[in-house]
Computed example of a mutant assay.
Amino acid sequence: MFLNKSKLGLSAIALLISAAASANNTVPAEVYAQTDGAIGGITYTQNKRFIFSYHPFYNPAVKVGELLKNGDVVPFPNAQMQNPYKSDGSLKNPANYLNWVLGVRADDRGNVWILDSGQAKPRITPKLVAWDAANNKLNKIIYLPSPISQAQSQLNDLAISSKYNTLVIADEGIADGGNGKQAALIVVNTQTGKSRRVLQGHESALPDYSMPIIIDEGTSEEKQLNAFIGADGIVLDNAQQWLYFAPLNKKYVYRIKMADIANEQLTDKQIGKRVEQYAQKPVNGGLSIDADDNLYLTIVGERTVGVIDAKTRKYRDYTYDENMIWPDGVSIGPDGYMYTGAAQLPLSAQLNNGNAQNKAPYYIFRFKPLAEGVIGR
């Protein structure tokens, strides 16, 4: 599942990246790896295992992969979990395979949490798979049945708090023809498995229908995508105090205290009143955060990762690359780097008037953030 890198080729690319970054007044991003499939979510475990989802938009055969130190990619947690069918052609028990995965996050207890939205055919009940990456064994599965998940649920990303034994999922609300109106957050107690759906219909979860996705604005390649996506990016700060989240089509990032959203005694209405409007932003997908609480946002239409400085709460472009076409997940790894991919969604036939221009190699980029952070966030 991996395309070997050419040292000469990547050196030349690095020089071009550096020049482009200087021209755009941003820090350089370097090509860290190349794969033959589009990248969705990314996370690093504490024992430095690089885990990522192949973007489910393309219905990949392998849902989740691990990038090895030698440059190879192997299915994660194993090959058996990628295939829904037994050797005789019958369906496996849904507990034994992955169906539709975008969000992957490592916690600080050695687990990789895989968010399976279950929406690929044949559909299955959405679930969370916690895989012990230190001992290579299943820890637990938590199912997210109706009404926690709905027909329009597209479970995108997640944030994990060991302090509160709570996991929060961003549900974009765009499956099965949904237009984001059913977007919400799903709050899961990781000890008991008890889950609840909150903030559905709240402004912090809903898209702005006057704010379409503009691809490559101001260039000859500019085009408009009338896709409206609710709660999308989500991240918890390193102190596990504030949970940040945002709809994709919205000019605001919101936040709420993790203690509040984890409090099972608060009603949905009470939770909604405790949500704060944090800062303005462009149309963005993934979110990450560093140790100084600077927020990083993948700007899906502009081949850019931006930053909201914690001191000013002002957005600016941070790193750019012409091949960073639709960066999605973004996450901190070892050695102080932040990683993102390029899913090339605007080049796909579905979003390009039937003309498929997306093609391998698909890039994984890395860049230096303003400060270091917790691996996996």
Rank of each mutant, 00 (worst) to 15 (best):
E322G: 04
Q119E: 13
N70A: 10
A184D: 04
V112I: 14
Y244F: 15
L68D: 03
D292W: 00
S220W: 02
Q191T: 13
S117L: 10
V374K: 11
D237E: 06
T298R: 02
V74P: 08
I39R: 06
N24E: 13
T43R: 09
I124S: 07
V253W: 00
F76I: 12
A310C: 02
K92E: 12
T125S: 06
G103Q: 11
V101R: 11
S6E: 01
D328P: 08
D328E: 13
Q277D: 11
L91T: 09
L248F: 05
L167C: 10
S162K: 15
S87H: 04
I375H: 02
Y320P: 00
V235K: 10
F367L: 03
K140R: 12
A61L: 13
P60C: 11
A170R: 14
N83T: 08
G306I: 06
K368N: 01
K368V: 09
P77D: 10
N179Y: 02
A170S: 15
L295G: 10
G218M: 12
L91Y: 07
A106L: 12
S6F: 01
F76R: 09
S18W: 07
T192I: 09
N179T: 11
Y315M: 03
N59Y: 12
N96G: 12
G341Y: 08
A61K: 14
Y337I: 02
Y363D: 03
T298I: 04
T192G: 04
K314D: 02
Y278R: 10
A356F: 00
S204W: 11
K63M: 07
I124F: 01
Y320D: 04
L10Q: 11
Y32P: 01
K69R: 13
Y320T: 04
R197D: 05
S90W: 02
I174G: 00
N78M: 09
D309C: 01
S348V: 01
G336Q: 08
M324A: 08
G329Q: 08
G118K: 00
L225P: 00
N226A: 01
V235F: 09
Q240K: 05
L266I: 02
L128N: 03
N136Y: 10
M1K: 08
Y32M: 04
K140T: 14
R313C: 03
A19E: 03
S153G: 12
G9Q: 10
D268Y: 09
R197F: 07
T267Q: 06
A130S: 14
N4P: 15
V275T: 06
K311Y: 00
L206H: 06
Y362L: 04
A175Q: 12
G272P: 13
S204H: 10
D317N: 15
